[in-house]
Amino acid sequence: MASHSVGETFELVREVDRYRPIYYAGASGDFNPIHIDPEVGRLAGLGGNILQGLCTLAWAVDCFARYLGDPGAVTRVQARFSRPVALDDTLTFRGVVTAVDGERVHATVRAENQRGEEVLKDVAVEGRTRPEGLR
């Protein structure tokens, strides 16, 4: 049976390619100009357009889903968006299991850019341990 234990770690690295906010806008419907128009981002003092926070969060969740082995096993996700993510940033997600109680795995994920700055804060995720016999 799949076992999880406190202190186990998992990691995912994602590069923010230049068109990522456009792809995410198209799929999610979040066409806020700050995400797709570099000029709007510059006027807001952000140096250009920025990635949707929910895209960053989706990657943090993916990092945990890979660890669980099943995205359908994720039961809870929580985060604060603490810093804008710019194009060409490289994000590193590092998770650690904080508790395992019966059928639930609890973990936190640290999400930082290439300068070591946290782009999400207080990321907490929770998932089901995989039932036996499921691939």
Partner: peptide, 8 residues
């Protein structure tokens, strides 16, 4: 948008 939670 400053915080987000999902529960499934």
């Amino acid at each position: 948008h400053t915080e987000q939670t999902f529960e499934y």
